[in-house]
Design a protein around this nucleic acid. Structure first.
Lengths: 261, 261
DNA sequence: ATGGGCCATTTATTATACTATAAATCCGTA
DNA sequence: TACGGATTTATAGTATAATAAATGGCCCAT
């Protein structure tokens, strides 16, 4: 039987991979048990974990092992630990930025480009615009209109308007109702933002013009959503995002994703 | 000035967030420095880090702090630590599964449903089919054809065919050339697979029929890619994935994503 | 050659001590 | 009584040392 085609993910050399049995370390086991209690809802955000000495007894491990477990959960953004009286470990609800960090790391190591990140959003978001247009509620409309108003009143303030633009995308993605996709776009946005803010945040000479174009695009989208015209909403939004992408690429080139560190 | 609309990501209570200054812990600083050296390429996959005692000297920290840093990097899947002679920490190139784990955790906590995960792929993949069709090389064709052949010869072996099906999606996504999107789909696939394998992996009565339908879909896609017909490739693939989604949903219902743990 | 046993290396885990931090409390003064 | 500052105290942060366990290499006897 021939080897199945395309079996290698990439051309990386085959370092002794995972097949071997792994002896779980104490810290991992502890982290796993605590994590389980969190995702199962036994521990809710804001809850305090027992003190280190208590947990040492509960898990029958040394303080060192317990603290190693804490570092792991902290890295996963599942807990945060403060010191001082009434300090200790508290459950925290992890935010998108966390996942975005892992993904960004992976993308950077794979040499993904900024262009690709923008293109990914360009692929995803128009579909969400369509979905929202086809399933919108009156509340969606209200929120979108209110947001447009906000953008209109800050057309000149390029910093506020930049925020508003990002917020528009967020509203769209969030209200389209698909949690995984919303997370994906959120991560891509986070990566994009972390990348560009490392570079100049200056305003362009034609900033007002650009802002006006953005506002137009947003307005057209809302119109199509109001009209429940999914097809048109998708088209409008794709055109809009293509323009945005072109501007950004023109500005920053097609360098590799480099933001973290 | 009115509060900007839709500012809250979700209705979570506002626990004392990040605004406070954070005293970085020794372990975090160490992890950061090592991570930096990895992403900057100073340390390549397979390289061995110095022994713990050496690094204690290099960073001027205690063994405990150093080991906490190791646990963090281990959790990020950037290193792996073996003990014994010639053991120690070695750089490892992180795999998709890592990011998938964080994302899956987040999705589970947000109550995302299996249906949504499938729908996300349904949104993304057809666009990739189109992109590949429009930019395919002869090598792409060769790989795809070879894969189809493989599927054809294993139509009856439902376990192998299931693998082949997943592989088909992977080839498509990988060859479409967008690293971030490939990663996204890869993660969704990983989450999907981890979820379903917790349930029955039994074969259905009409398995052969289903397999044949899948193979037909795949064949049609490859035909359209060969013809460089992006429009049709996208349509074919959307229809195919919609069918797959329907079958899975019918089988498993619309329960929440629950896979980890 | 092959297998067994010893040894050096290196992480895993534990134990203990000391330090740093921050909340809570107490107390004196206005 | 109200305020502000010193003190107490619970808690995590770091350091050090000692022991356990795993791993790989080496030598030797068969």
């Amino acid at each position: 039987m021939a080897k199945q085609p395309g079996a290698t993910t990439n051309s990386a050399p085959n370092f002794s991979d995972d097949p071997m049995i792994r002896v779980p370390k104490a810290a991992e086991l502890i982290a796993e048990r605590i994590r389980r209690r969190i995702v199962l809802g036994e521990l809710k955000a804001g809850d305090a974990l027992p003190s280190e000495s208590d947990m040492m007894g509960e898990f029958s491990v040394s303080r060192a092992s317990l603290r190693e477990a804490f570092r792991v959960l902290e890295a996963e953004s599942l807990i945060e630990v403060k010191r001082g009286a009434h300090g200790g470990a508290r459950i925290k609800l992890p935010k998108d930025e966390m996942a975005a960090k892992s993904v960004g790391l992976l993308l950077q190591m794979r040499g993904a480009t900024l262009k690709e990140v923008l293109h990914a959003r360009l692929i995803i978001e128009p579909s969400l615009a369509r979905a929202l247009a086809e399933a919108r509620t009156d509340e969606d409309i209200a929120v979108l209109r209110q947001h447009l108003e906000w953008e209109r009143t800050h057309l000149n303030d390029y910093k506020v308007f930049a925020l508003a633009t990002a917020e528009m995308h967020r509203i769209l993605v969030q209200r389209s109702g698909n949690v995984p996709l919303a997370l994906m776009v959120g991560m891509l946005d986070d990566i994009f933002r972390r990348h560009v803010t490392q570079f100049v945040a200056r305003s362009r000479a034609d900033q007002l013009e650009l802002n006006q174009a953005s506002l137009d695009g947003h307005t057209q989208l809302v119109d199509m959503i109001v009209a429940r015209n999914g097809e048109a909403a998708e088209a409008v939004w794709r055109r809009h995002m293509q323009r945005v992408k072109d501007v950004v690429i023109e500005e920053l080139g097609e360098t590799t994703v480099l933001d973290l560190y």
